[in-house]
Design a protein around this nucleic acid. Structure first.
Lengths: 145, 145
DNA sequence: AATAAAAAAGATAAAAAACTCTTTTATTGT
DNA sequence: ACAATAAAAGAGTTTTTTATCTTTTTTATT
């Protein structure tokens, strides 16, 4: 088990890629993105369509069209992508899968997991999409393989 | 997305239940366990068969048979259950799903996730199966719903 | 207006995960 | 030995996730 679904992994990598490539109003096509992050092209297209509907990413059809991120989108925290794709289960769900788990009716691991969930949430909340552009430019960080 | 697979959630809850109920050499049947943790009976049977093969839980067939945990099994850390069921992906895998992600070829989130993965690992490693017996006896913690 | 480019939408397909049902094997007690 | 009990094993089915392929719509350019 990974932390995120495959869909969400592709989504994050794709958004990073777009943020990195499509600076200053340029647009990136789905072929370039899927090649750039090593993901199945049509599957990624579906994911970006969905994120586009939700306003996480912007898109334009036709020649010179493609995906891009406006000012607001670039500033968004990673948490927004994760929540749009995987929902908030990772932030609030019970580690043992109990529906009613809560402070008053906790599972044995409730408190331990609360800490970890909060850390994941904090991390994703304080990290903006555009934050890795420099590392990607410098080739310090990778989105492929 | 949850942290663990459904299979793993059932596994942990079942093992907690067995540890709690089957003190002092007693055995618990699959019916009682699945009722006690609110899981599908036959599915859980498969899971426990697997854990039994792997030595995480002990079992005995026939009348008065059932599942139980020997001394060594009770002392095991939760990490052993998780690893037996979900593998070590949650401890070592890349958050963005990259196969080659590492210190020398990190994804943008590599360092942040390393911290979180380590915390999950530490928590599961230092927590023993039997550790929640008291909370369960006192009804402070719940394994159902 | 015609053409070409590119995302959106629709429809399937394949693989994995979750779950169910039936039969077999081992063990205990009579 | 026989009957009853309970896990193990085998063989599905269903649902969800992941992935592919085709057609449609929108837009820019000529």
């Amino acid at each position: 088990m990974a932390i995120f679904s495959k869909t969400c992994e592709y989504a994050i990598r794709a958004i990073f890629f777009i943020a990195h490539k499509a600076s200053a109003g340029a647009r990136v096509g789905i072929k370039e993105i899927s090649a750039g992050i090593d993901s199945p092209e049509h599957f990624l297209a579906k994911i970006l369509q969905d994120l586009s509907r939700k306003g996480i990413v912007q898109s334009a059809k036709g020649p010179n069209g493609g995906f891009y991120l406006d000012e607001a989108a670039l500033k968004r925290p990673l948490a927004d992508i994760v929540e749009a794709v995987d929902g908030n289960g990772i932030f609030i769900g019970c580690g043992l899968g109990l529906k009613q788990c809560s402070e008053v009716n906790p599972c044995p691991l409730h408190n331990d997991f609360k800490m970890i969930r909060n850390q994941i949430h904090d991390l994703l909340q304080r990290t903006a999409i555009s934050e890795f552009n420099e590392d990607l430019n410098l080739g310090i960080a990778s989105l492929k393989k």
